[in-house]
Every structure is written in C-alpha cells, then in structure tokens.
C-alpha cells in the first residue's frame, strides 16, 4: 500500500495505491473516488474472525470516540488498484509508517485510513483527557504498516525531547513514548481564563507529536455566532 498526498495543505487528498488483493481500511464517508474493480465491504468488526458481539463492541467504542460505527474495507480485486480519500474538513493529511516499536495515539476525528495490519482501537483517555476538553475517548493505533491521519488546518510535526506544551484543541496525534499531563495555562485560574488558553497538555519524554494550526472548536464558535439560531 502506497500513499500519496496532494493538494496540501488546505484541501489535501490521499491517493492510496493497493497491490492486487491488498486491503485498505477507511473511516466511513471518506472515499472520494476509486477504480471500478475495487470492492467495498462495510463492517463493524475490527479484525478477521471477530464474532458478532466483538464487532458490535468495537463498533460502539469507535462511535463513542466520535468515529463512525462502521468502517469500510476497500480491496483491489485481482489486480492493483487506486482509491482516493479526503477528510470532511479543511486541512492537511499525514502518512505515518508504524513499525511496531510504539503505538500512536490520535485525537478521535483525526483518523482517515490505514493498512489492514494496523489495529485501531478506542482508548479510554481517563479523567485527564476529559478535563482537557477533548473527547473522553481517543484512538490508539498499534501493529505495523501505514496509517493516514488528518488535521484541521495545516499540520506541524514536532520532535519532542524533554518537555513541550500544546493547547488541547491543537493536538492531532502523538507517539505513545510520550507521556502527557493536563495542566492549566499560566500560574493561576485567573490567568488561565483571561489568557484565553484554557487547558493545555504537557508532553514529556522523547517522541513525535503532530499539532494542527487551527482549532476546530474556535472556528465553529467564531462562525456560529453569525448564524441564525437553531430551532429548539
């Protein structure tokens, strides 16, 4: 599976080229175009041989994480084939090659597609992610192979060694060799509120971190005040 990203950064498109009989798993609704011989199977199960209950559970967990209940498996039947994917929102796409040495933690809406050998699981973030203003659940990718994720705005890769602080709304993904704690911005509650920064995440350790240059929450709030009221 080879991934090429074009039209960066605002309207990025991922073109996935599959070998014969190879499969790419994608978030529901992400497919833009494909070769006709690519077959599509919609499933709630995360891996081969997982029973109905197992499939239901992983589907539910994904849904709670803000992803769709079902995932689509695209298979290049017979010969090599191409599928293109795009996220719903304005923003960039990054391909990350998992080599089994560490896991990748993603903000729940960041997932776009991945090789079949990569396992995506919803992970309970615990109270610290709740207070961080993010979803309660994050996604965790393990295994090996390429995984493709997207951001809101452009994406910036940061090699963390030591400490680094990121605003919660700007986190896209990070290698789990990094530890994180939620902390308020500044020295006191007042500074935290007046500074407009709310909660921030402090990463420690050594690993890669991806941040997005726009905050979807901020964009939504900025526009929503100009829109007519929603009927109750």
């Amino acid at each position: 599976m080879n991934v090429e990203v074009s039209h960066r950064p605002a309207y990025a498109l991922a073109t996935v080229t599959l070998d014969a009989e190879e499969v790419v798993v994608a978030e529901g609704g992400a497919m833009v175009s494909m070769d006709t011989h690519v077959t599509v199977e919609t499933t709630a199960a995360k891996k081969e041989g997982q029973g109905l209950m197992g499939g239901l559970m992983s589907g539910l967990k994904r849904m709670v994480a803000g992803e769709s209940f079902f995932q689509n498996k695209f298979k290049a039947a017979g010969t090599t084939g191409k599928v293109t994917f795009a996220p719903k929102h304005v923003g960039d796409i990054v391909t990350y090659e998992m080599d089994g040495s560490c896991e990748l933690v993603m903000q729940s809406t960041a997932y776009l597609c991945s090789a079949e050998s990569v396992e995506i699981d919803a992970k309970w973030g615990g109270s610290k992610s709740f207070f961080g203003g993010e979803g309660l659940i994050m996604l965790k990718a393990s295994g090996s192979g390429p995984i493709v994720f997207n951001s809101f705005g452009a994406i910036k890769e940061i090699d963390v060694t030591g400490d680094f602080i990121v605003d919660n709304g700007h986190i896209v993904a990070f290698e789990d060799t990094l530890n994180f704690t939620n902390t308020k911005f500044g020295s006191g509650i007042l500074q935290s509120i007046l500074g407009g920064e709310g909660m921030v995440c402090k990463f420690t350790g050594t690993g890669k971190l991806w941040i997005q240059t726009r905050n979807p929450q901020g964009f939504g709030e900025a526009l929503a005040s100009k829109l007519p009221l929603r009927p109750n």
Binding site: K88, P216, L223, A224, L229, R230
Partner: peptide
C-alpha cells in the same frame, strides 16, 4: 460537510 460541521455550534432558540 462544512455546513454539517458548523450545525452543532449554532446557538439554540430560547
């Protein structure tokens, strides 16, 4: 898709 994203941010009518 953009419209769908913005929808939940709209304030509710009292």
């Amino acid at each position: 898709s953009l419209a769908e994203f913005l929808q939940p941010f709209r304030k509710l009518q009292p």
